[in-house]
Simulated assay, not measured.
Amino acid sequence: MEKLGENLKKLLLVGIGTAAVTAEKSKEILDELVKKGELTVEQGKVLNKELKHNIKETIKDNVKVSVKASTPEELQTLLEKMTPEQIEQLKQQISNMEQAAEEKTADTEEAVEAEEEKPEKTAEATEEASEEAADAE
Rank of each mutant, 00 (worst) to 15 (best):
M82N: 11
E103Q: 14
E32D: 08
K60T: 03
E127L: 13
E32S: 10
P84L: 07
K49A: 00
E110K: 14
M97I: 13
V41D: 12
E74S: 07
L30H: 05
E32A: 10
L30R: 10
K27V: 07
E24I: 12
K60S: 07
K25Q: 06
D107F: 03
E117N: 02
N96Q: 09
L51Y: 10
K91I: 06
E124D: 09
E32H: 05
K68V: 14
N62I: 10
K36E: 13
D135Q: 09
L33W: 01
M82Q: 15
L75E: 13
K45G: 04
E116T: 00
A114R: 12
Q92W: 05
T40F: 11
L30N: 11
T71D: 07
E38Y: 15
A100N: 02
M97G: 05
A20S: 07
V63H: 03
K25G: 02
I16D: 08
T77P: 00
V46N: 04
Q89V: 14
E131D: 09
E132K: 04
T105I: 09
E128M: 12
I59K: 03
G15I: 04
A125Q: 02
A133G: 03
P84Q: 01
V34E: 11
K36V: 06
I94S: 06
K9Y: 05
L79W: 10
G37T: 01
K52M: 04
I87S: 14
T122P: 01
K45Y: 04
L12P: 00
M1W: 06
P84A: 05
E24C: 00
V14P: 06
E6H: 08
E137M: 11
T18A: 07
N7V: 12
E80Q: 15
S95Q: 11
L78N: 14
L8P: 03
A133I: 01
K27R: 10
K10H: 00
A123R: 04
T126I: 08
I29G: 02
K104G: 12
P119W: 01
P84G: 03
A100F: 04
L47Q: 12
S66I: 12
D31S: 06
T18Y: 07
T108C: 07
N96H: 09
S26M: 06
E109C: 04
L90T: 14
T22I: 07
A101Q: 11
D61Q: 11
T77L: 12
K60G: 09
S26Y: 03
M82W: 10
V41L: 15
V65Y: 11
A123K: 08
T77E: 12
P84V: 08
E128K: 14
L4T: 15
D107T: 03
E73K: 15
E38G: 13
T22M: 00
G17T: 01
A136N: 08
E128Q: 12
K104E: 00
K121N: 00
K9C: 03
V41G: 10
Q89G: 09
